[in-house]
Amino acid sequence: MIKFEPISNGKFWSGTDWSITDEDELARLIARVAIGQYRHVLKVLNETDCIAYAPTRNALEGAIRALTAENVEQPWHRDGWLFQVISWIAANIQNPESLKSPPHMIHANKGFDGLHICLDETDENVVSVVICEEKATDGPRGKITSQVWPEFKSLEAGSRDNELVSETTTLLAQNDHLDPDKAVHEILWKRARAYRVSITIGDKERSQDGRKALFKGYKKITPGDVVGKRRAETFHQSNLRDWMSRMANKALDAAKEMEAENV
């Protein structure tokens, strides 16, 4: 469904480049998220037994809103939400063991795009808290320098630590952590804080040199050991908006089929 190729730039950053191998299956998973069944998607990805529940009429209407651009000439919010869902799916395939915040259910959510928590082998202590920025854009370098780097710099300075502590505690509690308050209190935040930027790229950024230029400044903004500290994920599409529109329509069709199968 999604194929991953390693990419890196020495001590500066490391990650993967994504390519879609099965658009129809991806669309079905996106549809499940859109109707509010993200837990079903997790079970599918983990290959555990799960019952495919049909969406209610209201859930289907909500999915239609999520997958539809209010202005077809300016589909930025719809495409941004869609890419966040794809990034969440990709992260669960790449690292199923880490805890992850559920996908947002509204366009242009003001919180963190995503939050991942990696625990040690005892599942009691937090090793890292990964803050995600996920951008679907036709101008990736400009988006990184104008939005992603300033946000990461602010987070490194601790300006949103209250939000980070709150969301980390909530995510641990939702996953039945023994003592989420104690775990959060004992986190060495400077050492544990890590970053993951997922971004769409065009032909210009597809080469090694193109990616080096794209993520220039990452280490300066978020200094420290590269191991797990600075993740860089790229997804190439020459005609991004056309592809996003096609995937949204496929997911819409899949959601409607789920309802029709159970009428």
Rank of each mutant, 00 (worst) to 15 (best):
K216D: 11
R230C: 05
F215Q: 01
S19I: 12
K219C: 07
S128T: 07
A248G: 06
A213K: 13
M105Q: 13
R78A: 06
G10R: 08
L99S: 05
G139E: 15
E70H: 12
N9P: 15
A108L: 07
P55S: 02
L214A: 10
D113V: 01
T48A: 05
V226R: 06
K216A: 10
L45N: 00
Q94H: 08
V33L: 03
K256N: 12
F83T: 02
I187W: 01
T16R: 10
Q208A: 15
M105T: 13
S166Q: 09
I187H: 01
V41W: 06
A90P: 02
R28G: 09
K3N: 14
V130M: 02
E186Y: 14
T145Q: 08
D113A: 01
W149P: 03
W88R: 02
K135R: 08
I201P: 01
F12D: 14
L155S: 07
W189K: 01
V148L: 07
F12Y: 12
P75I: 08
S8Q: 10
R211T: 06
F152V: 00
I35A: 04
F4G: 03
R196S: 11
I131N: 05
S87L: 03
A66Q: 15
P75H: 09
R160H: 09
G62Q: 09
G10I: 04
Q147S: 12
L178S: 12
Y195T: 00
E261Q: 14
E121G: 04
P150R: 01
L164S: 01
G142A: 14
A194V: 00
E25K: 13
I106H: 12
A157T: 09
S19R: 13
V263H: 15
E163L: 12
Q174G: 08
A90Y: 08
P96N: 05
K100I: 12
S154D: 11
V130N: 05
S166F: 13
T234N: 00
K143C: 09
P180V: 02
I89S: 02
L67Y: 04
F215I: 06
G202V: 01
R246Y: 10
G228R: 01
D123T: 10
K110G: 09
K182S: 14
A192M: 09
L67E: 04
I64L: 15
T21M: 14
V227M: 14
W18H: 03
C132Q: 12
L188W: 13
L171C: 02
V33N: 06
S245Y: 11
A69Y: 06
S166P: 05
A91E: 06
G217Y: 01
I201E: 00
D24M: 11
Y53P: 14
A108V: 04
D242S: 12
S98D: 13
V41G: 03
I106A: 08
A54G: 11
I20Y: 02
E61Y: 09
